[in-house]
């Protein structure tokens, strides 16, 4: 028996939150040594995948398992789906071996999204660390598609070394734009590197934005986000205007499995994007 799985949106997900849709790998692009991007298309080529920037999908590799990966493609181009991930476990290792045409299971989209609409008429400062740039890229696409609706847009990006900088050519293209300020920094570099060396939080102090009229979108390792929050608040950005994307162990993505709890929150459905004032009392506590 062969079942055609209709690729579906949130409605079908609500009916059976474990139902997966079949997607074929169109391309697998190596980004850095240990990161890669999967470009997926629904097996049923006519289908569109609607999502909001910051949401994630559960990706299933046949016979191996399922993991959450944020969506890093352009929400305005719903015919292909990009997922950038790091090769860290059995599922991502298996993913990296996939050839074009291989079929994956996709469940989603799940979770909360970046408040892109709330950013209108405001300065937007995006602070990303490492692979944390991946879930922020859809937000940037959305903003750049309607650039005139926003004030200054600043991207501050920190990576480990120059070789670990994600989406490098895209960052170069963005840097060349006059309507987007891009500042990147790395934690370590060999002599000859002409960019910045130092932690990404060091970029916040001098970045050009009006702290009182700014929305900040932050994603990276939790420690990096905690220090980023301190710097943003020192600049005068209010907690209600700071949004973070949290990472926890997500298995079911719909609040049934309990794994992703962070204090009172289920990161899978109450997050992954949280407004800082909702998280603040839990951030920085040990082993929450």
């Amino acid at each position: 028996m062969r079942t055609d799985l209709d690729p579906r949106g949130a409605e079908a997900t609500a009916l059976d939150p474990m139902a997966v849709a079949s997607y074929a790998v169109r391309r697998l692009k190596g980004e850095t040594d240990d990161t890669f991007t999967l470009e997926l298309q629904p097996v049923d080529g006519a289908a569109r995948f609607s999502f909001a920037p910051g949401q994630f999908n559960m990706l299933y590799v046949f016979g191996v398992g399922e993991i959450p990966i944020s969506i890093s493609s352009d929400p305005l181009k719903p015919k292909t789906l990009w997922h950038t991930t790091r090769e860290v476990g059995t599922v991502t290792r298996a993913m990296r071996q996939l050839k074009p045409g291989a079929v994956l299971g996709v469940r989603g989209p799940f979770g909360t999204h970046w408040p892109v609409d709330e950013c209108e008429a405001k300065d937007v400062v995006i602070v990303a660390g490492g692979i944390g740039l991946a879930p922020l890229r859809p937000a940037l696409y959305r903003i750049l598609a309607q650039r005139d609706r926003y004030g200054r847009v600043v991207l501050l990006y920190g990576a480990r070394t120059p070789a670990d900088i994600l989406y490098r050519s895209e960052l170069e293209r963005w840097r060349a734009r006059f309507d987007l300020e891009v500042y990147a920094t790395v934690d370590r570099a060999m002599s000859g590197w002409r960019g910045n060396v130092g932690v990404v939080t060091g970029l916040i102090g001098r970045a050009p934005f009006d702290a009182l009229n700014t929305v900040a979108l932050v994603c990276g390792p939790e420690v990096m986000m905690r220090f980023t929050v301190q710097e943003l608040q020192r600049r005068g950005v209010r907690a209600q205007a700071i949004h973070l994307s949290m990472e926890r162990n997500m298995k079911c993505a719909v609040g049934f499995c309990g794994h992703c709890q962070f204090g009172p929150w289920f990161v899978c459905k109450d997050g992954p994007v949280f407004r800082l004032d909702r998280l603040r009392e839990w951030l920085g506590k040990w082993e929450v």
């Binding site: 028996m1 799985l5 079949s22 097996v43 046949f62 016979g63 299971g105």
Partner: peptide, 16 residues
């Protein structure tokens, strides 16, 4: 058991 699947070629063959 949530579901079973068979290795498919063009589709993930999920058996309800």
């Amino acid at each position: 058991r949530l579901w079973r699947a068979r290795a498919g070629h063009r589709e993930l063959d999920r058996l309800p």
